[in-house]
Simulated assay, not measured.
Amino acid sequence: MAETIGDDAEQDDDGRLRRAATYASVGVALTLIAAKLAAYLYTESVSILSSLIDSSSDLLASVVTLLGVRVALRPPDRSHRYGHGKAEPLAALAQAAFVAGSAVFLTYEAINRLFNPVAIQESSAGIAVMVFSIVLTVGLVAFQRRVIRRTGSMAIGADSLHYSGDLFMNLAVIAALVLTGMTGIPILDPLFALGIAAFLIVGAFRIAKGSLDTLMDRELPHGDRKRIREIVMAHPATRGMHDLRTRNAGITLFIELHLELDSELTLAEAHDITDEVECRLTEAFPQAEVIVHQEPFGLSDDRLDTRIAEAGRLRRGS
């Protein structure tokens, strides 16, 4: 009972950290939009416009993240007995769409400025705003990474990647303003904007891939699966295991496997051994729900491992 209470308290702390990170993200995005909008109106720099567009998409993405995390933290109910954890990768996928959309708009605007250059006014004011943006963003990313290390949140991880990209973007904007001011060549500004747009596209692709992997129940990395197998086989009563299945449901990992035990064991003995194996796996993967099916060692039956191996041989043969 004490262990259960402790686990519940830890989950509550994780939930509060997730919520705090989403509120901080929305607050930072609103602040940066106001500062960059003023800077763009003052300087008419397309590089600052690119950063303003990105901050606007950040705000939308941060709001989606806030809603996604709020839904993901809901406990299981009659209609969602596995919980609501996949709301997080859905939120991250929406972020990828926002990022890609902002990159397309930015590309259009930058190309337009290449053919119709506009002189930048008062670049020093723009630089000051971008330095302010960098300082604020560094603080947010540091807090988000702390939350990610603690909770493993996919939505906040995507949001953090978003803002980490902003750091490089802001540095690129400063470089564009400085170089344009020094050389007087107006096309340098839209050229930097095109580079920023390419960076956004790459980031959107990475976010989308991670989200789709989770939504499609992709297996955990090979190293994690190997670790699971080693933990199970390390128990002295284990005779074998098969049909290991794993997936990441956003805020919860699911580990399922068939545990092979001596057929002479009583039901109570097999149950105790299974509990010990599950406890060892939970210690190694605190965010996991572990489901173990017991089977007599040496039993010949239809196995998922066998079907997957046969399907692989058929694909190679074709």
Rank of each mutant, 00 (worst) to 15 (best):
L194I: 15
G68P: 03
E44V: 05
D166F: 03
G139K: 00
L253S: 15
T246F: 04
D14T: 05
T137I: 05
L200P: 05
N112C: 01
N248W: 04
L106M: 15
H293R: 11
D305P: 01
A270Q: 02
V147A: 12
L67W: 09
Q287D: 15
D159T: 12
S102C: 00
R316T: 05
Q294C: 10
D14E: 13
L52K: 09
M182Q: 08
V64A: 15
Y163Q: 08
A9F: 04
G139W: 00
V63Q: 03
L220S: 12
I33F: 02
S263G: 11
A110H: 11
L106H: 11
L93Q: 08
G203N: 15
D243M: 02
T214I: 13
R19Q: 15
L114D: 11
D166A: 10
E3S: 12
I185A: 10
M241K: 02
M182I: 06
R280V: 01
R146A: 13
G15I: 03
T180E: 14
R313P: 02
S102Y: 04
R18T: 13
Y42D: 14
S55C: 02
V63I: 12
I291T: 15
R81L: 12
I156F: 08
A29G: 04
A268I: 08
M233E: 14
E260W: 03
M182H: 00
I308S: 14
A125L: 05
D8Q: 10
I156T: 06
L49F: 13
L177T: 06
R229Y: 07
S25H: 10
P117V: 09
T151K: 05
L177P: 05
F105I: 12
S133C: 13
A208W: 04
R218P: 07
H235P: 04
